[in-house]
C-alpha cells in the first residue's frame, strides 16, 4: 500500500504559539483517514498546510511521492487535492450551478447538475447559494469538493450543522467514494468517525497523540481521557 499523502516534521508557529508540532502523518491511498482531537488541537492548521493555505514553519509535505511543500495552493488543488472549509465558504451571491461550475473548473452544466444530484440539491440548481439553509450550504460545500474527483479530499468538519438525516446521507456519499478517493476527514462527531474511518490520527496541542485503526483508538485509554471522555461536551 502506498501513501498518497505524507508529512514529515510539519510544524506551524503563530507568534509564540506552536499550533502544530512536528507532525508525521501518512495517509494510505484509498483510505478514509480521520483526524480527531479537541478544539484548538491544530487540526485545521495541519490540513491547511497540506492544502497550501498556509506555509509551514518547518517540515515537508509529499503528495503522490512529490514534494509539494513550496507549491502554491492553486497548483496543489490542480494536482488533485480538494479542500472544503470548516467555515462554510460557498459563493453566496452566485447560483448553486455557478458554484459547481467554478469547482469543476469547466463549464459543463451536465456535470454540475450531476454533482448537485449527489447531495440532493439538483432541484435548487438555479437558486442563490446564500438563500440555502445552513445545512444545505454545508452540503453544497461538500459537493464542490467531491465534484472535483480529487485524489485526496480534505473535509474539515463537514457534518457540523447537519441534521441527523443529512448526516446519514453524508455517510452514504462518503462511503460511495471509497476506493476512488482518499479522504482526510476532520470530524468531531464520533459516530461518523467510527462508521467511516479506516484509520484515525488523534491530535492534541499540536502533536500526534495516537494513530491507529478505529478499534485501536477506542481501546486507547489516553485518548479516551483526552478526547472521548468529553466528546459530547
Amino acid at each position: 500500500m502506498t501513501d498518497v499523502l505524507r508529512t514529515e516534521g510539519l510544524t506551524k508557529d503563530f507568534a509564540g504559539l506552536r499550533a502544530v508540532d512536528r507532525v508525521d502523518l501518512s495517509v494510505a491511498t484509498g483510505d478514509i483517514h480521520a483526524l480527531i482531537g479537541p478544539n484548538g488541537a491544530g487540526k485545521s492548521t495541519l490540513v491547511g498546510m497540506v492544502a497550501g493555505r498556509s506555509q509551514p514553519s518547518a517540515g515537508r509535505v509529499w503528495f503522490d511521492g512529490r514534494d509539494i511543500t513550496t507549491l502554491p495552493a492553486h497548483a496543489r488543488i490542480r494536482a488533485g487535492i480538494a479542500y472544503t472549509f470548516q467555515i462554510t465558504a460557498v459563493y453566496a451571491r452566485l447560483s448553486l450551478l455557478a458554484n459547481l461550475e467554478l469547482a469543476l473548473r469547466d463549464r459543463s452544466r451536465t456535470r454540475a447538475v450531476q454533482a448537485l444530484e449527489r447531495v440532493g440539491l439538483a432541484a435548487r440548481a438555479d437558486q442563490l447559494a446564500g438563500d440555502l439553509s445552513y445545512g444545505h450550504q454545508r452540503l453544497l460545500e461538500i459537493a464542490m469538493g467531491v465534484a472535483q474527483a480529487p485524489r485526496l479530499l480534505i473535509l474539515d468538519e463537514p457534518t457540523q450543522g447537519l441534521a441527523e438525516s443529512e448526516i446519514s446521507e453524508f455517510n452514504t456519499l462518503i462511503r460511495g467514494l471509497a476506493g476512488q478517493t482518499t479522504i482526510l476527514l476532520i470530524e468531531h462527531n464520533m459516530n461518523v468517525v467510527m462508521e467511516l474511518a479506516d484509520r484515525i490520527t488523534v491530535l492534541e496541542t499540536g502533536s500526534v497523540l495516537a494513530n491507529g485503526s478505529p478499534a485501536d483508538i477506542q481501546a486507547n485509554l489516553a485518548v479516551q481521557e483526552a478526547y472521548l471522555g468529553h466528546a459530547d461536551g
Partner: peptide
Amino acid sequence: LRFGHVLIAVRENEERTRMLGYDT
C-alpha cells in the same frame, strides 16, 4: 468566458477561489 467567471469568483470570495485551484 471562464476567465470572466473567475474574476467574479475572486470578487465574491478570493480564498475560496484560490482553494478551487485558480491562480487568483
